[in-house]
Each structure stands twice: as C-alpha cells, then as structure tokens.
Nucleic acid binder design. Structure first.
Length: 484
RNA sequence: GGCGCGGUCGCCAAGUGGUAAGGCCGAGGUCUGCAAAAUCUCUAUCGGCGGUUCGAUUCCGCCCCGCGCCUCCA
C-alpha cells in the first residue's frame, strides 16, 4: 500500500517515493538550541518521528536528516548572557534536547548536522549567488538575497511578494525594524551577516566581496544553513522537506529561493508542515503562563509516554490544544492500552517476553494490513492520520480475532510506527516488599481487622494509609498497595 | 488587507452524499462488609441560514465564531 502525504507546494495529497528508488531522502528543520524546547516543538518532532517510522514500515527506507541550529541572534545573546562560549552554550542545550527526545522515544536522525560545522558549505552557496547576481552586498556590508531575481518566490507559501505586508511587530512581539536602507527591497533576506561588535567571538571569514575581493567576516543568515546541509547530505534535489508550519514562510520559502538559484535544480520535491500546538487555547508563551516543557511535566509526575500520546492524538494538519486535563486523559488511555495489550496476549497464550522478543517479529506492512490492526496502518499511510490510526488501534484491541500471532505481529508494527511502547503489565500494584515497613504493617493490621470483621478498625487503618499516600487494593485472598 | 485552517457528544478527536470511529470524563450493572480496584453496558445528528440532490454533517453560497502565517517562533 502506497503512503500518501499532503504537499504544501502543490496543495495536493501525493504519494511519497524515493526518487532514486533506494532511500527516501528527508530533511527536517531541527531546533535552535538557545533554551529548553517546549512541548510545541516536540509535537512537531514527535509527528516527524511517526512519519519517519511509518515511512520505514512502508518500505521507503528513509534517510532522515535533522539539523541543529547553533548560531543565530538568540544563541549568541544567550551565550553572552551566560558568559560562556557559543559552543558551550549550544552544547548544553543540545544535550538537553537529546535527553527530551530520548524520553519521548524519538528515533535519532541518521544525520544531525550543526550549522557551525558547515560554514564552508554555506559560504560556497553565498559566493555562487553573488557570482550569478542573485545576491548583493548591502549597505551594511552584509550579503542579501535579491528576491526580485527569483520569479517563483512565494510558490511554497503561496504569498505574492508584492502583497506581503510587513507587520508592526514580529511573532516574538518585537518591533520589526524593516528599514530598506541596507537592502534593495524589504523582502530581501540576509544570506551572510557582516560581523558586529555584539557578536563577540562569533564570526568566520565569509564569502569574498566581488568588488573588493576580500572575505566578509561575519556569520551565516538563518536560512542558509538548511540549504547547505540538506544539499550536502541529501543532494541538490531530494524527496521531502518538513518542519513546523511557521517555517513555511519565510524560512522554507527562502531556502527554496537560495537553493534553486544556486543549483539551478528543483530543491525538495515534497513539503510537509506540522500545524502548531496551542496550550490552554492560546499560543504558548511564557507571559501567558502556558509554556510547558517536557522536563516540567515529567517533574510534576506526568508520564512522557502520555505526553507523546497526546501530542500525536490529532492529525498533524490540525491544531491541537494542549491542556493538563487532556494530558491526564492521555495517561488514563495509555494505562488502558497497556491493559488491553496484556489481556490480548493472555488470550493468545503469548507471554510478554515472547511478545517483546524477536520471537514475534514486526509484520511486513502488507501482511499487517490483512489483520484487525490493518486499518491502524492504513490510516498512517493515508496522509499520516495519527488520530484515525489510534482509533483503529482501539477497535482492533477489542476484536476477538486479534489474539493470533499474525495479528500480534501487526500490533507490534502499529506500535512501532506510532512510537508508543506498551509497558509490561505495570499496574502499579506493589507487593509487601516494595512499600515502607510502616505502611506494610498498617496494611497487614487492617487486613487482620477486616478478617475479624472489625469494620470500624479496618476503615480507620485504611484512612491512615490514605493519609500516608497509599491506597489499599483488596483481593479475595489478600491485599496489595498502590501509591496515590 | 493577503494566504490558509477549523467549528462534530461535558472534554479531546476521526469520518462519510444514504441516516455519525475512537479516547477521556460521567452514569448504571457485576464484584465487594463498605470503598477502591477489576469488569461489562450506556451516552451526539455534526455553528447558523439558504441552495443543489431522491437524500448533506459530508457539495455550493452567504453569515457568525475561533485560530495560524504575512521576515529570523516547531
């Protein structure tokens, strides 16, 4: 079954395929490492992870490149504020990002290039563009892209350059200082920024000024790195480029302009954009108090798996509103999912270990489609409909014919694609040896009171345990304890 | 002003020209000394008004409401 995905460029849902017949070459814009990534960032990265996984089970053999932006205004400012080098500063936040990715069980990209490690490649593109007249040195010594030179400018975001209206403030709420003095047109964007005092030690010998023949010291503009690195690792033309919806314009539009002008070839063939997450009904921002990071949520005791479940619970093309209530709902759902899988295994007479081991392999997608879990796979193949896929997963879990080896293989495939690993029968029940002695002794006393049919004493002891934060789970023949 | 997305059960969220998947919450049953846990069952006519059609939530038009992007936010 063919996998299809909506393409921003053509505004059509098109089949995904590897142009070279071997690997589907995909580039995703990664984070700018200047602070903790928030869950909105991770909605995009989680969805792209599902995409990567789904392409894998579809046999598309993805080659996944996702960059790290480690030089820009914010990283420079942040490192200056911290009194550390740009390198140290961005390493710190990159490590934090990787830790969060691991918590969410995101597959590590095949290549994760950093902007600062690809300066020569970026400079080479600027020099090409200068030579062909697509770029010019502006009044401030920086190199700008001449948008007027690229007649297809706007083809991705479907904006007409002449209709672009410069807002009073940018998305960060800061005033746009879009003065035309340095540039020929407001729409022109910086390819290479000339060195400024506030950049401190952050500068490289840049492209040669065609007029003087001298290198222009400075640093790359924002869009340039993605062109340079995607071309380096995937070739001048590749299969798919993805990112958050905010990147569509100007970032991706500018990538297309500079790449296609530099190579003379079509850049990415297919474009995918993940719609943003809202938090408590509004765009996430620190001032609104609805700014969530994964670390915060985990520290509050929420399960990272539940965060991921929630983040992928609506289609990548629709907005998702994150609320704590929904996160709790996701936790409940996940608990039930674990149980559902356990009982399915029990019905099939297959042990948890056998299920997790190689004994039951992930099904080939074609085989999986014929099982009750088929619809869950088909939904992912159809424009990566994660919400429909989860719905189909629940349906299949209730299907009696799901208790077969073939179906369980298919289940493994679905869980792999969604990137949700079931937790082995972790029903939070603790045996006597796992709780504090005091608690165990209270529980035992209460059990004895109960056996003696002394309900008053039994209820008092149960209350005492509740005050200590433990719940008694009664059985016919005994008791166990649950925290909370 | 330009481009785009969306309004489906209390909440989240799929979907289709022929009478609405799923999850959460809630309610009820079973179990239980009671409670919890477990388990089973139940819960919508799709923003408004017109139009096309044998038939529209699904297509078209208008209106109302919400949201995103419009130069460095995933």
């Amino acid at each position: 079954m063919e996998m299809r995905l909506y393409d921003t460029l053509s505004r059509e849902t098109l089949p995904l395929y590897a142009a070279d017949g071997k690997r589907l070459r995909m580039y995703a814009c990664g984070p700018t490492v200047y602070g903790p990534a928030h869950i909105g960032n991770f909605r995009t990265f989680s969805l792209l992870d599902v995409l990567r996984r789904t392409m894998e089970i579809a046999g598309l053999n993805p080659l996944y490149v996702r960059n790290i932006t480690d030089v820009d205004d914010k990283t420079i400012k942040g490192s200056a504020k911290d009194g550390t080098s740009l390198y140290e500063f961005t390493r710190k936040w990159t490590e934090k990002f990787h830790a969060d990715c691991a918590l969410l069980d995101l597959i590590v990209p095949d290549v994760e290039p950093r902007a600062t490690e690809h300066i020569p490649e970026q400079v080479a593109i600027v020099e090409k563009l200068l030579a062909s007249g697509h770029a010019y040195v502006g009044g401030d010594g920086s190199v700008y892209y001449r948008v007027a030179c690229f007649c297809e400018y706007g083809k991705l975001s479907h904006f007409h350059p002449e209709e672009l209206q410069t807002q009073d403030t940018n998305s960060a709420g800061k005033a746009n200082s879009a003065d035309e003095y340095d540039r020929e047109q407001v729409a022109d964007f910086a390819l290479w920024k000339a060195r400024k005092d506030e950049d401190g030690a952050v500068h490289w010998p840049g492209p040669r000024n065609p007029d003087t023949g001298l290198a222009i010291e400075g640093r790359p503009g924002w869009h340039l790195e993605c062109s340079a690195m995607s071309i380096k690792y995937l070739g001048e033309s590749f299969d798919l480029h993805a990112g958050g919806e905010d990147l569509c314009f100007p970032h991706h539009e500018n990538e297309i302009a500079q790449s296609e002008a530099a190579t003379g070839k079509p850049f990415s063939r297919h474009w995918m954009h993940c719609v943003h997450l809202l938090a408590e009904g509004k765009k996430m921002s620190k001032s609104l108090g609805n700014f969530y990071t994964l670390a915060d949520l985990v520290a509050q005791g929420y399960d990272a798996r539940a965060v991921k479940y929630l983040l992928i619970s609506s289609s990548y093309r629709s907005q998702l509103n994150f609320t704590v209530a929904n996160l709790k709902g996701a936790e409940s759902a996940l608990k039930k999912l674990d149980k559902g899988i356990n009982s399915l295994l029990a019905k099939a007479g297959i042990g948890r270990e056998e299920f997790e081991s190689e004994a039951i392999a992930r099904a080939d997608a074609a085989d999986a489609l014929g099982t009750p879990f088929g619809p869950a796979i088909a939904a992912l193949f159809d424009d990566m409909n994660t919400a429909a896929s989860l719905g189909a997963l629940w349906n299949a879990l209730r299907d009696d014919s799901s208790a077969s080896r073939a179906a369980l293989s298919a289940l493994k495939t679905v869980l792999y694609a969604l990137g949700i690993q079931p937790i082995p029968s972790k029903d939070e029940e603790l045996g006597a040896d796992e709780a504090p002695e005091e608690v165990v002794s209270l529980a035992q006393k209460r059990w004895e009171a109960k056996q003696a049919r002394d309900w008053g004493a039994a209820d008092t002891l149960r209350k005492q345990l509740a005050e200590l934060g433990w719940t008694i789970l009664d059985r016919k023949d005994g008791w166990s304890l649950k925290k909370g």
